[in-house]
């Protein structure tokens, strides 16, 4: 089971908050996006994380991981 979370404006654009998928193969983050975002192209500015560490499109996701997609940050 892989948990995928979306934050802030990206959550609204994608229309999803959090979803879980079952997979038997190791996937890149890019493949995860394609699987769960119904053909929505990945915006250029999107940031991503695996288990709360920044990652990139080619990072590999394993069973039990938490993946997150979010827009550029604006704290402080």
């Amino acid at each position: 089971m892989i948990t995928i979370k979306f934050f802030a404006s990206l959550r609204e654009e994608v229309g999803k908050n959090e979803i879980q998928i079952e997979t038997s193969e190791q996937l890149t983050i890019a493949k995860i996006w394609d699987q769960v975002c119904d053909g929505i192209p990945l915006p250029n500015h999107v940031l991503m994380a695996i288990n709360m560490e920044y990652a990139d499109l080619n990072s590999l996701v394993e069973d039990g991981d938490e993946v997150a997609f979010f827009p550029p940050v604006t704290g402080g």
């Binding site: 404006s9 994380a49 827009p71 940050v73 604006t74 704290g75």
Partner: peptide, 11 residues
């Protein structure tokens, strides 16, 4: 660093 990468978002 906080402003550049800490995951906060303002609405």
């Amino acid at each position: 660093e906080l402003k550049a990468k800490a995951p906060f978002w303002k609405r």
